[in-house]
Simulated assay, not measured.
Amino acid sequence: MEKPDQIFEPINHDSVAEAVVHQIESLIVTGILKDGTRLPSEREMSELLKVSRPKLRDALKHLEDQGLLHVRHGEGSFIAPLTGTALTPAFLDLYARHPEAFFDYLEYRREQEAFAARLAAERATGADREIIAAILDEMERARDAQDSEAAQIADINFHSAIVDASNNSTLIHMMASIYDLTRRGVFYNRDFLRTIEGAGRKLLAQHQAIAQGIFEGDPEAADKAARAHIDFVEKSFRIGHQRELRERAAKKRRVLAGQK
């Protein structure tokens, strides 16, 4: 996240509290301030915005009343959970029992991530490209260290960074909910992919291809690379699912053979 003095702007407006509210709302809408983000201290924010602390308190109170902020006494002010969860716990359990639903999830991600990559290739700023490049470095280090947890975190951060670089506020907030499911391991278990020979190298190359299309400002290449990445994941999991079914059948045959 950028330093506070780089995202907040001094207030110059007749209605100071309203201007503070508007600026923070805009940062939330554009996805710069996300769920759970802690705001700077009251003293720091008043200095950054160049407003009095009473006016700032009025603005923060208004945002809290709107349900946009959570104030935790002794901890500070935090952006409230706004995107919610895509599915209820009961429905998540249902999905877990029916692997075919996972492929619907991938189908959705394929279209949305290809769209995000295309927009990012057209709209990404220099700062966006720097963030994506830094995450690619993290992915490479995680692969070399065979650190599956770090690799999964970097993977999600990579796709989130591309969505952010799309500069489409609706896409940013909708995909935040989808990536939350991924973080919780509801659908996507990267551990399986590690059992496929050369998967780590292939996944890194796929992410690099997506980034390259964005860095070169080539929407078609970015779109194509994003689709190819999800296609690889889908194919790998279909193979894995079929292998699991065959192994279950073989175990049953072994049990029956032992009974003879």
Rank of each mutant, 00 (worst) to 15 (best):
I79L: 10
R129C: 11
I172S: 04
T195R: 07
A161D: 05
A19K: 01
D231L: 02
H241V: 12
E197K: 15
G213P: 05
N12R: 14
L69H: 03
E107D: 08
T30V: 11
T83D: 03
A59W: 01
T170A: 13
R184D: 06
E9T: 14
A96D: 12
Y179G: 01
H98C: 07
V16Y: 03
L69R: 02
R57M: 13
L82V: 02
F8N: 04
L94N: 13
D191Q: 15
R238T: 08
P10S: 13
D180K: 09
N157D: 14
S46D: 13
H229A: 06
H73G: 10
D93Y: 12
I11L: 03
D128L: 06
L204S: 07
L48W: 07
H22R: 15
R123Q: 04
A165K: 04
R143Y: 09
L68R: 04
A117M: 09
L39G: 02
R123E: 03
H98P: 06
I210F: 10
R141C: 10
P99G: 08
E2M: 12
R123S: 01
A211P: 03
G74Y: 07
Q23G: 02
E42I: 15
E18A: 15
R190V: 13
E2S: 15
G36K: 08
I162A: 00
F8D: 01
D104F: 08
P54N: 06
H159I: 04
A228L: 08
H62Y: 11
K251F: 07
G198C: 09
K202M: 12
V21M: 06
D180G: 10
K202Y: 04
L193D: 05
I162Q: 04
A101E: 13
N167F: 12
I32D: 04
G76F: 04
A96Y: 07
L94W: 15
R246N: 11
A211I: 07
E247A: 10
D65C: 11
I11D: 01
A127S: 13
